[in-house]
Design a binder for these strands. Structure first.
Length: 419
RNA sequence: GGGCAGGUUCCAGAGUGGCCAAAUGGGGCGGGCUGUAAACCCGCUGCCGCAAGGCUUCGGUGGUUCGAAUCCAUCCCUGCCCA
């Protein structure tokens, strides 16, 4: 099975330019994917293009990851209805570092076909306006640019600045640069990148007479129609300090039944037979949620390592398997290390009512909310439902005199450490 | 630079002098059912307060008025058209 066939059965190929399959099958090639440094970390949505690069490398091709130090300063209008707020240089630099270290977990930068990590700022920052307009701008008609989906949609909506309008030219130039310097002939990306990718292919054809190709991945969706990669807490990041391995594991475990097969193909390296066996298992014994467990394990291990996975599983077991009773404070602390926690003084804790405790600790954002929560029967202290909002915290509530476990609903735990 | 249309609570969007903390939908949160799923049902969804009630909010500022999201002035922002 070659790379293209693998990408195909896994569902990665949403759209491909003419000849892409052939080009990939002909021999070892170099291909790239771009990553946007708008946030300090990549998130689970970026996992799809990352896996694209992983497959590329596993099939012996050379992957290039481009971080958009330059394009990040401009803002890609693709898939965005609003003009972006420009990032300052320091933020951008910090984000680049974070992304870089994350990519290093997935790709091998040594060996036979080492991955390459580059920053497009390196070849873009010194480009003069005159050169840009003569060497790149000259090859694009305004009609061509206006016809791009990303531009069209914005023109119909709230408009687009010249800055973002120019974005596609910079990305096209990236492709040309990589074509020239690394013989990179394929660009992959999310389906919203189609316009930018084809712009690059056209530029390469026009100025070098070269052939280049593009493959775009499908938009990640959830069966329930919510945005993929979001939970109640917001985006699911790859950085453990932004999304704990426990939360990360839980995110995958909670995958909708209807999505789990697709996600196994996208986000794990499990072979076809295994994925299909898991799907069969889902049909036969859905309540076991075996595919969900496997998905969560595979992805968590890949992102957070074996150690992170084991901790996440242990925490999940205690939090969902039973009650914290009978578990020592030390053990609890270890298990809850991935659950949000706050420090408070013992004195403070003991002076508070339940509504105050929930609010002060950050579990609820106001006393009003805490009150409503209690009225609805959704607040638990040490896994026991709280009915009285005025109830004070008592000494006997403290596990071994120093821990409190506060819970909102079924899944939202907060550990309070009293000193 | 000129003309027109807009800027409302997380989002969309109603409201056009008091009955407005502001309809409705979405989202979110909680409860129920279950499998830590989906679907479905119920409740909640500005802040403080046990409550009565109070406080802050409708792009910014200043005004008119007993009273303003609603009227006036001015500024800022966005879209469309013209130059």
């Amino acid at each position: 099975m070659n790379l293209y066939q693998e990408l195909l059965w896994r569902g990665f190929v949403y759209q491909a330019t003419e000849g892409a399959e052939e080009a990939v099958s002909r021999g070892k090639i170099t291909a790239y994917v771009g990553f946007d440094p708008t946030a300090p970390s990549l998130h689970v949505g970026s996992l799809l293009p990352i896996m694209g690069l992983v497959h590329l490398q596993r099939h012996g091709h050379r992957p290039i990851a481009v971080v958009g130090g330059a394009t990040g300063m401009i803002g890609d209008p693709s898939g965005k209805s609003k003009e972006r707020v420009l990032l300052d240089r320091e933020t951008l630099e910090r984000n680049l570092q974070g992304i870089k270290s994350q990519l290093e977990k997935f790709l091998s930068f040594t060996g036979e076909n080492p991955a390459i990590l580059v920053n497009n700022y390196d070849w873009t920052h010194s480009l003069s306006v005159i050169d840009f307009l003569r060497d790149i701008g000259k090859h694009f008609s305004v009609g061509y640019m206006l016809a791009k989906e990303s531009v069209k949609r914005r023109l119909e909506g709230e408009g687009i600045s010249y800055t973002e309008f120019s974005y596609m030219l910079l990305q096209a130039y990236d492709f040309l640069h990589l074509y020239d310097h690394y013989n990179c002939i394929l660009q992959m990306g999310g389906s919203d990148q189609w316009g930018n990718i084809t712009a690059g292919i056209d530029l390469i054809r026009k100025v070098r007479g070269g052939k280049a190709y593009g493959i775009v991945f499908p938009l990640l969706t959830t069966a329930s129609g919510t945005k993929f990669g979001k939970t109640e807490e917001g985006t699911v990041w790859l950085d453990p300090s932004l999304t704990s391995p426990y939360k990360f594991y839980q995110f995958w475990l909670n995958t909708d039944d209807r999505d789990v097969g697709r996600y196994l193909r996208f986000f794990t390296l499990l072979p076809k037979e295994e994925v299909e066996a898991l799907e069969e298992e889902l049909r036969r014994r859905p309540e076991k949620r075996l595919p969900h467990r496997r998905l969560a394990e595979e992805v968590t291990r890949m992102v957070h390592g074996e150690e992170g996975l084991q901790r996440a599983k242990r925490a999940s077991m205690v939090l969902f398997g039973g009650s914290p009773e009978g578990v020592s404070a030390d053990e609890l602390e270890e298990i809850m290390s991935h659950v949000p926690s706050v420090q408070m003084t013992k004195q403070e804790v003991l002076s508070l009512s339940m509504t105050e405790l929930a609010t002060r600790s950050g579990l609820t954002s106001s006393k009003g909310e805490a009150k409503r929560l209690i009225a609805a029967g959704g607040l638990y202290l040490n896994n026991k439902k709280i009915n009285n909002p005025a109830r004070k915290v008592e000494v006997k509530d403290l596990i071994e005199g120093r821990l409190l476990i506060l819970r909102k609903g079924k899944k939202n735990y907060l550990l309070i450490k009293a000193k």
